[in-house]
Design a protein around this nucleic acid. Sequence first.
DNA 1: ATATTAAGTTTACAGTTGTAAACTAAAATC
DNA 2: GATTTTAGTTTACAACTGTAAACTTAATAT
Lengths: 150, 150
Amino acid sequence: MKENQMTTSEREVMKVVWANNSTTSKYISTILEEKMSWKAATTKTLIGRLVKKNHLKATEEGRKFKYSALITEQESLQESSQALLQQVCTKKRGNVLYQMIEETTLSLEDIEQLEQLLSEKKRIAPETVSCQCTAGQCECKQEGEIHCGH
Amino acid sequence: MKENQMTTSEREVMKVVWANNSTTSKYISTILEEKMSWKAATTKTLIGRLVKKNHLKATEEGRKFKYSALITEQESLQESSQALLQQVCTKKRGNVLYQMIEETTLSLEDIEQLEQLLSEKKRIAPETVSCQCTAGQCECKQEGEIHCGH
DNA sequence: ATATTAAGTTTACAGTTGTAAACTAAAATC
DNA sequence: GATTTTAGTTTACAACTGTAAACTTAATAT
């Protein structure tokens, strides 16, 4: 059963729900009409898709629904960030993280937390991480059993 | 001019090119037939799309082409990771990074590099990062000018 | 020269995504 | 009660993705 990754537009909707716990489609579309210049219909479509994907729960309340999240923002970001790192050689993931940190504005507190985490990880860190890539898709694995055409 | 984000399948192709500088479609499809069980035709389609998107350059060589990358893996990952963080409140980006580090196996060297980077960033880090989110899309901004429906 | 193979180009086709109009039914208003 | 507004559902439609077959042309092998 494949994880139904959330799209960028859908995440815009979810952010409203996450920020408000349980809310109406009216509220969501007001916010997104403002921010995204979306017609109410667009927001409705997205809400419908999120319900179908089981990211939103619709609770009937009179003639309307209240929408609430079935996935937390954390979880959702976790899926997305894992999906990203999954595409990168295990040995290069550190560099990706490096780049990301480099380009992100972090508060002192953020930094201290990361430092804390790193110092913990350090105690159990392996000396090296081994490349898991298929031969031909990574410099680490360049034994050349298959002639590479140059 | 919108950045033409690379897709997951396309990245599979690019990884072969990145690992081999300049190579043939034959080589690429051999590798990906192995790894992804793709028919040669699939790889050809992807190569074509990447050329169109200007991620690959095709250099004619006799009756064939040699393909080489017009974007580095770094650059490409940078675009993708930035696209991800962009979807997150500035104040929560540190947490995303925290989660990512937590779940990634890093070598001692990786960790030391990150620590190094963090200690440099620390010197110029702001006390706090301010939320840039639209009201209604983030707990940080909950002044409630718009009634939120609960 | 002819048949087969290889490389590249064109076409295909369903599913996903972004964006929204049209329609329906219930509710609020005149 | 007739009309307008609302909330939700259905339909639309083009671009993008994943996956590949069909076709074309040049090169190779017979």
